[in-house]
Amino acid sequence: MNIVSLSAGCCLFATGPLTEPVGVVHYLIVGAILFTAGVVCMALKRNALGVLMGIELVLNGANLNFVAFSSPYLRGAGSATLGLDGQVIALFVILLAAAEAAVALAITLNFYNNHSTVDIDRADDLKG
């Protein structure tokens, strides 16, 4: 239990002890981590589906920020929030991400049918 609390405290060293309430900044940090992981994933993976997963991570990082800025629990006294707007934007992002995944998956399947692989480095048919 001591070790757990110690490690928990270490994780929060930059953001305050556990007795403090969570603020918008904490959400932004998590969003930044998700976003960065997604960008690296998109850049690094050679599997087309891996790239797709990177896109999902990026969208989620952005969504987390939207929700944090619109959250009724996270506003300070007197400061404005995005209100419902942030949540609605997050909603539309989720919906459009689903649409994007469907189309991207269809393209990937087509690519696989033509090239027998999902390695995107092989998609160089148009290279001069």
């Binding site: 309430p21 900044v25 629990y73």
Partner: peptide, 12 residues
């Protein structure tokens, strides 16, 4: 950028 958003910290 995230840590510079100070004005929204410490809500209850």
């Amino acid at each position: 950028a995230a840590l510079s958003v100070d004005s929204w910290q410490r809500p209850g």
